[in-house]
């Protein structure tokens, strides 16, 4: 826990003290060091929740339902943070908070799925039934992923840049990229810590 805390402090310090301003974006680029890890975690949490949902259906042990729900709650917080930070960044750089860009649509669908999942959990009072129906819904919602990743980007124009790390090599400044990768690793470690924490 203490190591993760130190690592997080070091990354925040690097974001505000070391990372150079980006061409055309200036210091606004700092938002992406919070926005991208939050979006990354919301996707990881989504698959983690579905993974534990499948384990619950297979083994019928309530601990897997608790882990699935915990992943969904973390994912929900991350997806809200990612959406808000992305909307602010979008307004400051492209002039509009929202334009139904494919990635904005994807993140919005994630909000809807997480919201629906958590609403369902609140609406069902019986512990065993809640675990079962939540697991089923979690797995059913995974079906939308191929559509959101492969089909949606072909249907709508995107303002988002091409993937930062792609087949043609790295496009970012090396310091910025190193800090971003460190932020992604740090956020993943925080997620693992929160998942392993008791209670």
């Amino acid at each position: 826990m203490f190591i993760i805390f130190l690592f997080t402090v070091a990354i925040i310090a690097a974001i505000f003290l070391i990372v150079p301003p980006a061409q055309g974006l200036g210091y606004l680029v700092r938002i992406i060091y919070f926005h991208i890890p939050a979006a990354w975690l919301s996707v990881i949490a989504f698959f983690t929740s579905a993974f534990y949902a499948a384990k619950f259906l297979k083994f019928q042990e309530i601990i897997f339902d608790e882990l699935s729900a915990r992943a969904a709650k973390i994912g929900f917080v991350c997806v809200i943070f990612s959406t808000l930070s992305g909307a602010i960044f979008s307004k400051l750089t492209w002039g509009a908070y929202w334009n139904w860009d494919p990635r904005q649509t994807t993140i919005f669908v994630l909000i809807l799925i997480y919201g629906a999942y958590l609403t369902l959990r609140l609406a069902v009072t019986d512990l065993k039934i809640r675990a079962k129906v939540s697991a089923i819904y979690s797995l059913l919602s995974v079906l939308t992923v191929p559509f959101l990743i492969f089909i949606l980007p072909r249907m709508y124009f995107s303002l988002h840049p091409s993937p930062i790390i792609n087949s043609s090599g790295l496009e970012m400044d090396s310091t910025m990229l190193a800090v971003l990768i460190a932020a992604l690793i740090d956020s993943t470690l925080i997620f693992i810590y929160l998942m392993k924490r008791r209670g």
Partner: peptide
């Protein structure tokens, strides 16, 4: 409203 909340994300594609 639970039915529409649960159904919409699934049938969005």
């Amino acid at each position: 409203g639970l039915f529409s909340i649960l159904l919409f994300p699934i049938i969005l594609p």
